[in-house]
Simulated assay, not measured.
Amino acid sequence: MTQEELAGELNVTRQALSNWERDVNEPDLNMLKKNLLSFWSQHGRFCEGACAGVTQAAKTPEPL
């Protein structure tokens, strides 16, 4: 997914998304939460397997 596509999905400009990535500014959390919930409901099935792997990896500590 390109930056332009993601910005469109989140209903923000590509420049806003770029500023977030570069820590120039931060998104409004209420707006972001609403848009991410919408994004997840549209793309959740696609992400389910990949996100489960990330979640499991985060729960599994590295051996010392």
Rank of each mutant, 00 (worst) to 15 (best):
K33W: 13
K33R: 13
K33N: 11
K33T: 13
K33F: 07
K34P: 02
K34Y: 06
K34Q: 07
K34C: 09
N35Q: 15
N35S: 13
N35A: 05
N35R: 10
L36E: 05
L36D: 04
L36S: 02
L36M: 02
L36K: 11
L36I: 06
L37Q: 13
L37S: 13
S38W: 07
F39W: 12
F39G: 04
F39Y: 12
F39K: 03
W40G: 04
W40K: 15
W40Q: 14
W40D: 12
S41N: 13
S41E: 14
Q42M: 10
Q42P: 06
Q42G: 11
Q42C: 06
H43T: 06
H43L: 05
H43Y: 10
G44D: 04
G44M: 03
R45Y: 08
R45I: 07
R45S: 09
F46C: 11
F46Y: 13
F46H: 15
F46S: 14
C47N: 09
C47T: 07
C47H: 13
C47K: 07
E48P: 02
E48N: 05
E48C: 03
G49N: 10
A50K: 11
A50P: 02
A50Q: 07
A50S: 12
C51L: 15
C51K: 12
C51P: 04
C51R: 11
C51Q: 06
A52W: 03
A52Q: 14
A52E: 06
A52N: 13
G53C: 08
G53V: 03
V54R: 01
T55W: 12
Q56W: 01
Q56D: 04
Q56C: 01
A57E: 10
A57M: 09
A57C: 10
A57I: 03
A57H: 07
A57S: 14
A57D: 11
A58T: 03
A58F: 02
A58Q: 09
A58S: 04
K59F: 04
K59N: 07
K59R: 13
K59V: 01
K59D: 03
T60A: 00
T60N: 01
T60P: 00
T60E: 01
T60Y: 00
P61S: 00
P61N: 00
P61I: 02
P61V: 00
P61D: 01
P61T: 01
E62N: 09
E62L: 06
E62S: 05
E62T: 09
P63F: 03
P63L: 08
